[in-house]
């Protein structure tokens, strides 16, 4: 018995060390965000900053709050629109028996895997003709398109858990597919849908490449603002650290909510809990 206690103790220490490896870099940046530029790069390092020093945040936010707002708008809208498109499709692919449904599902999935960089210029030209360059609308459309395949597959994996008898019983009672979708499938998959929504939210929130192509001034997102700070002029590290911290908050918080379903989501529903 004693041996196993010791073993557990050693393993727990190891696990803590591992956790530290994956936590420390972020923590260092978080500490950095409360330091002046000089303290950020002081040698020997300033280990614990003065957490009342919030100048970096106030300066950075006063310069960039509009980009933060853009990011929030784009992220929320594309999450909602993605769900509006994907949930019915996922439902259909799960419950409608029609020829070619596997093929269709595979086709949808494969669009998820194509690299966005290959679509950027054609979309740029398309939006130019539609006069939608540098608009939040264009970003929402593109993020939605890139998120739909993911949302369809993962939602489908949750819909599959609904007992098929339940669906068939309603069909026999004469309920329309719309009714079944809204009144049975959605309420029964609430948890799953939340998972999908969180993932889509984070994907949109994190996106950089497409925004680099499509935004000029008005519609710049927060990641674009951050990356602009690091171009070859002068890096104002206080700003960068504060912005990085703010940009990281939603993914970190949401990961806590995802916990249970994170494997399932990251593997497009292939791994069940």
């Amino acid at each position: 018995m004693k041996a196993s206690v010791r073993k557990n103790f050693i393993l727990l220490i190891l696990a803590t060390l591992i956790t530290f490896v994956f936590l420390a870099p972020n923590l260092w940046m978080l500490f950095g965000s409360f330091k002046s530029q000089n303290a950020m790069f002081a040698l020997p390092p300033v280990w614990i900053p003065d957490f009342t020093y919030i100048k970096n945040f106030t300066i950075m936010l006063s310069e960039s709050y509009m980009y933060l707002i853009n990011s929030i708008i784009v992220t929320i809208c594309s999450t909602i629109v993605s769900l509006i498109f994907s949930l019915p499709t996922a439902f259909g692919l799960t419950f409608f028996k029609f020829k070619g449904r596997y093929f269709l599902a595979d086709w949808i999935l494969s669009t998820r895997m194509l690299p966005p960089v290959a679509a950027a210029v054609p979309l740029f030209i398309l939006f130019k003709y539609l006069n939608l360059l540098d608009s939040l609308f264009a970003l929402i459309i593109v993020y939605t398109a890139f998120n739909i395949p993911f949302a369809v597959w993962v939602s489908a994996s949750f819909f599959k858990k609904i007992p098929i008898d339940l669906i068939e019983a309603s069909r026999i009672e004469g309920a329309s597919w719309f009714h079944i979708f809204l009144k049975i499938a959605i309420p029964l998959s609430k948890g799953g849908i939340a998972t999908v929504a969180i993932f889509v939210f984070i994907f949109s929130w994190n996106e950089l490449l497409i925004a680099l192509f499509f935004t000029v001034s008005e519609s710049r997102t927060f990641p674009i603002f951050i990356s602009a700070q690091v171009s070859q002029a002068q890096i104002i590290w206080g700003n960068v650290a504060a912005a990085t911290v703010i940009q990281s908050i939603p993914p970190i918080l949401l990961t806590i909510f995802l916990q249970k379903n994170i494997v399932s989501g990251l593997t497009l529903g292939a791994v069940k809990n």
Binding site: F22, L208, P223, T244, P251, I252
Partner: peptide
């Protein structure tokens, strides 16, 4: 597991 979802830019 937090790094997984962190913005790659960050």
């Amino acid at each position: 597991i937090m790094p997984i979802m962190l913005t790659p830019l960050c």
